[in-house]
Write a protein that binds this DNA or RNA. Structure first.
Lengths: 150, 150
DNA sequence: ATTTCTGCAAATGCTTTGCATTGCA
DNA sequence: TGCAATGCAAAGCATTTGCAGAAAT
Protein backbone atom coordinates (compact mmCIF):
# COMPACT_ATOMS: atom_id res chain seq x y z
CA UNK A 1 0.00 0.00 0.00
CA UNK A 2 1.67 3.18 -1.24
CA UNK A 3 1.09 6.58 0.22
CA UNK A 4 -0.26 9.44 -1.90
CA UNK A 5 3.15 11.07 -1.69
CA UNK A 6 4.80 7.98 -3.14
CA UNK A 7 2.26 7.74 -5.93
CA UNK A 8 2.81 11.37 -6.89
CA UNK A 9 6.60 11.21 -6.69
CA UNK A 10 6.62 8.03 -8.77
CA UNK A 11 4.99 10.07 -11.55
CA UNK A 12 7.41 12.97 -11.08
CA UNK A 13 4.65 15.15 -9.70
CA UNK A 14 5.75 17.36 -6.85
CA UNK A 15 4.16 16.94 -3.47
CA UNK A 16 2.91 20.33 -2.30
CA UNK A 17 0.82 21.40 0.68
CA UNK A 18 -1.92 22.59 -1.68
CA UNK A 19 -2.16 19.21 -3.39
CA UNK A 20 -2.22 17.33 -0.13
CA UNK A 21 -4.86 19.71 1.20
CA UNK A 22 -7.17 19.24 -1.78
CA UNK A 23 -6.80 15.49 -1.57
CA UNK A 24 -7.44 15.44 2.16
CA UNK A 25 -10.61 17.51 1.77
CA UNK A 26 -11.90 14.99 -0.74
CA UNK A 27 -10.75 12.04 1.34
CA UNK A 28 -12.72 13.09 4.38
CA UNK A 29 -16.01 14.01 2.77
CA UNK A 30 -18.69 12.11 0.91
CA UNK A 31 -20.45 15.21 -0.41
CA UNK A 32 -18.81 15.13 -3.84
CA UNK A 33 -17.84 18.79 -3.91
CA UNK A 34 -17.11 20.77 -7.04
CA UNK A 35 -14.06 23.02 -7.41
CA UNK A 36 -15.69 26.04 -5.82
CA UNK A 37 -16.82 23.99 -2.80
CA UNK A 38 -13.33 22.56 -2.32
CA UNK A 39 -11.92 26.08 -2.54
CA UNK A 40 -14.31 27.39 0.11
CA UNK A 41 -13.47 24.57 2.52
CA UNK A 42 -9.77 25.15 1.99
CA UNK A 43 -9.88 28.91 2.56
CA UNK A 44 -9.85 28.95 6.39
CA UNK A 45 -6.65 26.90 6.53
CA UNK A 46 -5.07 28.17 3.32
CA UNK A 47 -6.12 31.80 2.90
CA UNK A 48 -3.63 32.34 0.08
CA UNK A 49 -4.83 29.35 -1.95
CA UNK A 50 -5.97 30.25 -5.42
CA UNK A 51 -9.00 28.88 -7.21
CA UNK A 52 -6.81 28.24 -10.25
CA UNK A 53 -4.65 25.95 -8.15
CA UNK A 54 -7.69 23.92 -7.13
CA UNK A 55 -8.64 23.53 -10.79
CA UNK A 56 -5.13 22.41 -11.67
CA UNK A 57 -4.92 20.09 -8.68
CA UNK A 58 -8.13 18.16 -9.27
CA UNK A 59 -7.00 17.71 -12.86
CA UNK A 60 -3.74 16.17 -11.75
CA UNK A 61 -5.30 13.98 -9.07
CA UNK A 62 -7.80 12.74 -11.63
CA UNK A 63 -5.12 11.92 -14.20
CA UNK A 64 -3.08 10.07 -11.60
CA UNK A 65 -6.20 8.10 -10.66
CA UNK A 66 -6.38 9.23 -7.05
CA UNK A 67 -9.83 10.73 -7.47
CA UNK A 68 -12.73 10.33 -9.87
CA UNK A 69 -14.71 12.99 -11.67
CA UNK A 70 -18.50 13.00 -11.72
CA UNK A 71 -20.75 14.70 -14.21
CA UNK A 72 -24.23 14.90 -12.75
CA UNK A 73 -25.65 17.26 -15.30
CA UNK A 74 -25.29 20.67 -13.72
CA UNK A 75 -22.81 21.89 -16.22
CA UNK A 76 -19.87 21.61 -13.83
CA UNK A 77 -17.99 18.62 -12.47
CA UNK A 78 -17.72 17.07 -9.03
CA UNK A 79 -14.95 15.09 -7.38
CA UNK A 80 -14.77 11.98 -5.27
CA UNK A 81 -11.74 10.42 -3.57
CA UNK A 82 -13.62 7.15 -3.25
CA UNK A 83 -12.44 5.30 -6.33
CA UNK A 84 -14.09 1.99 -5.53
CA UNK A 85 -16.83 1.31 -8.10
CA UNK A 86 -20.07 2.74 -6.76
CA UNK A 87 -22.89 4.75 -8.23
CA UNK A 88 -24.36 8.12 -7.38
CA UNK A 89 -27.69 9.77 -6.90
CA UNK A 90 -28.40 13.42 -7.57
CA UNK A 91 -31.14 15.46 -5.92
CA UNK A 92 -32.70 17.55 -8.64
CA UNK A 93 -34.08 19.96 -6.05
CA UNK A 94 -31.08 20.87 -3.86
CA UNK A 95 -28.26 19.57 -6.04
CA UNK A 96 -26.87 17.19 -3.42
CA UNK A 97 -24.97 14.11 -4.61
CA UNK A 98 -25.00 10.94 -2.50
CA UNK A 99 -23.37 7.56 -2.89
CA UNK A 100 -25.39 4.48 -3.76
CA UNK A 101 -23.81 1.28 -2.52
CA UNK A 102 -26.86 -0.84 -3.06
CA UNK A 103 -26.57 -1.34 -6.76
CA UNK A 104 -23.85 -3.85 -7.56
CA UNK A 105 -21.77 -1.69 -9.84
CA UNK A 106 -19.13 -4.42 -9.84
CA UNK A 107 -21.52 -6.29 -12.03
CA UNK A 108 -21.48 -3.40 -14.49
CA UNK A 109 -17.77 -2.95 -14.06
CA UNK A 110 -17.00 -6.52 -15.04
CA UNK A 111 -15.04 -7.67 -18.01
CA UNK A 112 -17.92 -9.61 -19.50
CA UNK A 113 -20.22 -6.62 -19.79
CA UNK A 114 -17.40 -4.50 -21.20
CA UNK A 115 -16.83 -7.18 -23.83
CA UNK A 116 -20.53 -7.26 -24.64
CA UNK A 117 -20.59 -3.51 -25.12
CA UNK A 118 -17.40 -3.66 -27.15
CA UNK A 119 -18.98 -6.25 -29.41
CA UNK A 120 -21.94 -3.98 -30.06
CA UNK A 121 -20.23 -0.62 -30.34
CA UNK A 122 -16.65 -1.43 -31.27
CA UNK A 123 -15.46 0.80 -28.44
CA UNK A 124 -12.64 -0.13 -26.11
CA UNK A 125 -14.52 0.26 -22.85
CA UNK A 126 -12.60 1.40 -19.80
CA UNK A 127 -15.15 2.84 -17.39
CA UNK A 128 -18.82 2.87 -16.55
CA UNK A 129 -20.79 5.38 -14.50
CA UNK A 130 -24.30 4.89 -13.18
CA UNK A 131 -26.31 7.90 -12.05
CA UNK A 132 -29.69 7.97 -10.42
CA UNK A 133 -31.79 11.11 -10.30
CA UNK A 134 -34.60 12.06 -7.97
CA UNK A 135 -35.53 14.01 -4.87
CA UNK A 136 -33.68 13.57 -1.57
CA UNK A 137 -35.48 12.86 1.73
CA UNK A 138 -34.93 16.39 3.04
CA UNK A 139 -36.35 17.99 -0.08
CA UNK A 140 -39.28 15.57 -0.12
CA UNK A 141 -40.16 16.53 3.44
CA UNK A 142 -39.87 20.24 2.77
CA UNK A 143 -43.26 21.88 2.64
CA UNK A 144 -43.57 23.40 -0.78
CA UNK A 145 -43.38 27.16 -0.39
CA UNK A 146 -42.40 28.27 -3.84
CA UNK A 147 -44.39 30.11 -6.46
CA UNK A 148 -44.99 26.77 -8.13
CA UNK A 149 -47.04 25.50 -5.21
CA UNK A 150 -50.34 24.02 -6.30
CA UNK B 1 -50.37 9.07 -30.35
CA UNK B 2 -50.19 12.84 -30.01
CA UNK B 3 -48.16 15.06 -32.27
CA UNK B 4 -45.46 17.30 -30.88
CA UNK B 5 -47.65 20.28 -31.66
CA UNK B 6 -50.45 18.85 -29.57
CA UNK B 7 -48.14 18.09 -26.68
CA UNK B 8 -46.82 21.66 -26.68
CA UNK B 9 -50.22 23.31 -27.03
CA UNK B 10 -51.60 21.16 -24.24
CA UNK B 11 -48.99 22.77 -21.98
CA UNK B 12 -49.73 26.26 -23.30
CA UNK B 13 -46.38 26.39 -25.03
CA UNK B 14 -46.48 28.09 -28.39
CA UNK B 15 -45.57 26.14 -31.48
CA UNK B 16 -42.93 28.11 -33.38
CA UNK B 17 -40.81 27.26 -36.42
CA UNK B 18 -37.67 27.52 -34.29
CA UNK B 19 -38.93 24.96 -31.78
CA UNK B 20 -40.03 22.56 -34.46
CA UNK B 21 -36.69 22.97 -36.20
CA UNK B 22 -34.66 22.18 -33.08
CA UNK B 23 -36.79 19.15 -32.39
CA UNK B 24 -36.55 17.91 -35.94
CA UNK B 25 -32.76 18.20 -35.92
CA UNK B 26 -32.65 16.06 -32.80
CA UNK B 27 -35.22 13.64 -34.14
CA UNK B 28 -33.23 12.84 -37.23
CA UNK B 29 -29.77 12.41 -35.72
CA UNK B 30 -28.21 9.96 -33.32
CA UNK B 31 -25.08 12.02 -32.70
CA UNK B 32 -26.32 13.59 -29.45
CA UNK B 33 -25.39 17.17 -30.37
CA UNK B 34 -24.86 19.95 -27.87
CA UNK B 35 -26.41 23.41 -28.23
CA UNK B 36 -23.64 24.76 -30.43
CA UNK B 37 -23.87 21.75 -32.78
CA UNK B 38 -27.64 22.13 -33.07
CA UNK B 39 -27.17 25.83 -33.81
CA UNK B 40 -24.65 25.11 -36.57
CA UNK B 41 -26.92 22.56 -38.24
CA UNK B 42 -29.84 24.96 -38.07
CA UNK B 43 -28.00 27.93 -39.55
CA UNK B 44 -28.29 27.04 -43.28
CA UNK B 45 -32.08 26.82 -43.06
CA UNK B 46 -32.62 29.45 -40.35
CA UNK B 47 -29.93 32.09 -40.80
CA UNK B 48 -31.64 34.44 -38.33
CA UNK B 49 -31.86 31.84 -35.56
CA UNK B 50 -30.17 32.92 -32.37
CA UNK B 51 -28.03 30.73 -30.13
CA UNK B 52 -30.04 31.98 -27.15
CA UNK B 53 -33.18 30.60 -28.74
CA UNK B 54 -31.57 27.17 -29.06
CA UNK B 55 -30.66 27.26 -25.37
CA UNK B 56 -34.21 28.23 -24.42
CA UNK B 57 -35.73 25.66 -26.76
CA UNK B 58 -33.80 22.63 -25.53
CA UNK B 59 -34.73 23.66 -22.00
CA UNK B 60 -38.40 23.67 -22.87
CA UNK B 61 -38.29 20.43 -24.84
CA UNK B 62 -36.52 18.80 -21.93
CA UNK B 63 -39.05 20.03 -19.37
CA UNK B 64 -41.91 18.82 -21.55
CA UNK B 65 -40.21 15.43 -21.81
CA UNK B 66 -39.78 15.42 -25.58
CA UNK B 67 -36.00 15.13 -25.36
CA UNK B 68 -33.48 13.96 -22.79
CA UNK B 69 -30.34 15.70 -21.60
CA UNK B 70 -27.02 13.88 -21.35
CA UNK B 71 -24.05 14.83 -19.25
CA UNK B 72 -21.06 12.93 -20.52
CA UNK B 73 -18.45 14.77 -18.52
CA UNK B 74 -17.28 17.50 -20.84
CA UNK B 75 -18.75 20.25 -18.81
CA UNK B 76 -21.54 20.93 -21.29
CA UNK B 77 -24.71 19.04 -22.03
CA UNK B 78 -25.95 17.04 -25.00
CA UNK B 79 -29.43 16.31 -26.26
CA UNK B 80 -31.25 13.25 -27.54
CA UNK B 81 -34.77 12.99 -28.94
CA UNK B 82 -34.71 9.24 -28.37
CA UNK B 83 -36.42 9.02 -24.97
CA UNK B 84 -36.63 5.24 -24.86
CA UNK B 85 -34.36 3.97 -22.06
CA UNK B 86 -30.93 3.28 -23.50
CA UNK B 87 -27.41 3.98 -22.41
CA UNK B 88 -24.56 5.90 -23.98
CA UNK B 89 -20.90 5.55 -24.65
CA UNK B 90 -18.48 8.45 -24.87
CA UNK B 91 -15.22 8.42 -26.80
CA UNK B 92 -12.64 10.11 -24.60
CA UNK B 93 -10.48 10.82 -27.62
CA UNK B 94 -12.81 12.49 -30.15
CA UNK B 95 -15.75 13.30 -27.89
CA UNK B 96 -18.29 11.33 -29.92
CA UNK B 97 -21.34 9.93 -28.12
CA UNK B 98 -22.98 6.74 -29.35
CA UNK B 99 -26.01 4.78 -28.24
CA UNK B 100 -25.66 1.43 -26.50
CA UNK B 101 -28.67 -0.80 -26.98
CA UNK B 102 -27.00 -3.95 -25.76
CA UNK B 103 -27.19 -3.32 -22.06
CA UNK B 104 -30.71 -3.88 -20.81
CA UNK B 105 -31.33 -0.49 -19.31
CA UNK B 106 -34.95 -1.51 -18.80
CA UNK B 107 -33.63 -3.68 -16.06
CA UNK B 108 -32.11 -0.61 -14.42
CA UNK B 109 -35.16 1.44 -15.22
CA UNK B 110 -37.48 -0.95 -13.44
CA UNK B 111 -39.57 -0.24 -10.42
CA UNK B 112 -37.88 -2.86 -8.29
CA UNK B 113 -34.42 -1.35 -8.58
CA UNK B 114 -35.79 2.13 -7.96
CA UNK B 115 -37.41 0.81 -4.78
CA UNK B 116 -34.16 -0.83 -3.73
CA UNK B 117 -32.27 2.44 -4.19
CA UNK B 118 -35.03 4.34 -2.43
CA UNK B 119 -34.75 1.96 0.51
CA UNK B 120 -31.04 2.64 0.79
CA UNK B 121 -30.89 6.35 0.10
CA UNK B 122 -34.35 7.63 0.94
CA UNK B 123 -34.50 9.36 -2.44
CA UNK B 124 -37.55 9.34 -4.63
CA UNK B 125 -35.92 7.95 -7.76
CA UNK B 126 -37.24 9.06 -11.11
CA UNK B 127 -34.47 8.43 -13.62
CA UNK B 128 -31.29 6.47 -14.18
CA UNK B 129 -28.50 7.11 -16.66
CA UNK B 130 -25.78 4.67 -17.56
CA UNK B 131 -22.65 5.94 -19.28
CA UNK B 132 -19.76 3.95 -20.68
CA UNK B 133 -16.42 5.54 -21.45
CA UNK B 134 -13.68 4.41 -23.75
CA UNK B 135 -12.17 4.83 -27.18
CA UNK B 136 -14.21 4.54 -30.38
CA UNK B 137 -13.22 2.23 -33.28
CA UNK B 138 -12.10 5.14 -35.48
CA UNK B 139 -9.86 6.57 -32.77
CA UNK B 140 -8.47 3.12 -31.96
CA UNK B 141 -7.52 2.60 -35.59
CA UNK B 142 -5.95 6.02 -35.94
CA UNK B 143 -2.20 5.77 -36.09
CA UNK B 144 -0.91 7.86 -33.23
CA UNK B 145 0.59 10.98 -34.77
CA UNK B 146 0.51 13.37 -31.85
CA UNK B 147 3.35 14.74 -29.79
CA UNK B 148 2.53 12.11 -27.22
CA UNK B 149 3.51 9.30 -29.53
CA UNK B 150 5.86 6.81 -27.91
C1' DA C 1 -55.99 41.64 -28.45
C1' DT C 2 -53.18 39.34 -25.56
C1' DT C 3 -49.56 36.73 -24.42
C1' DT C 4 -45.53 34.56 -25.43
C1' DC C 5 -41.41 34.10 -28.16
C1' DT C 6 -37.43 35.67 -30.77
C1' DG C 7 -33.11 37.84 -31.65
C1' DC C 8 -29.87 40.89 -30.23
C1' DA C 9 -26.48 42.52 -27.17
C1' DA C 10 -24.91 42.91 -22.74
C1' DA C 11 -23.96 40.65 -18.54
C1' DT C 12 -22.65 36.83 -15.91
C1' DG C 13 -20.06 33.13 -14.38
C1' DC C 14 -17.03 29.39 -14.81
C1' DT C 15 -12.59 27.76 -16.35
C1' DT C 16 -8.15 28.44 -18.45
C1' DT C 17 -3.94 30.85 -19.40
C1' DG C 18 0.41 33.60 -18.98
C1' DC C 19 3.78 34.89 -16.24
C1' DA C 20 6.63 36.46 -12.28
C1' DT C 21 7.62 34.51 -7.88
C1' DT C 22 8.07 30.81 -4.79
C1' DG C 23 9.08 26.26 -3.29
C1' DC C 24 10.14 21.33 -3.85
C1' DA C 25 13.63 17.96 -4.91
C1' DT D 1 20.41 24.89 -8.52
C1' DG D 2 16.91 23.61 -11.74
C1' DC D 3 12.45 22.63 -12.74
C1' DA D 4 7.80 22.68 -11.50
C1' DA D 5 3.98 24.71 -8.97
C1' DT D 6 1.58 28.65 -7.06
C1' DG D 7 -1.05 32.88 -7.06
C1' DC D 8 -2.64 36.58 -9.35
C1' DA D 9 -4.94 38.94 -12.94
C1' DA D 10 -6.45 38.84 -17.43
C1' DA D 11 -8.42 36.35 -21.09
C1' DG D 12 -11.54 33.11 -23.01
C1' DC D 13 -15.81 30.65 -23.44
C1' DA D 14 -20.33 29.08 -22.50
C1' DT D 15 -24.66 30.28 -20.83
C1' DT D 16 -28.13 33.48 -19.15
C1' DT D 17 -30.66 37.70 -19.04
C1' DG D 18 -33.33 41.93 -20.33
C1' DC D 19 -35.88 43.92 -23.50
C1' DA D 20 -37.99 45.82 -27.89
C1' DG D 21 -40.10 44.09 -31.81
C1' DA D 22 -42.39 40.04 -33.96
C1' DA D 23 -45.29 36.16 -34.01
C1' DA D 24 -48.66 32.79 -32.25
C1' DT D 25 -53.16 31.92 -30.28
Amino acid sequence: MRTIEEILRAKKIKVTPQRMAVYSILKKTDTHPNVEMIYQRLKPDYPAMSLATVYKTVDILKKVGLIQELSVGEGGLRYDANIKPHSHIYCEVCGKVDDVEQYPLDELQNHFLFEKVKKETGYDVTLVQLYFFGKCPQCSMQKKTTAYEA
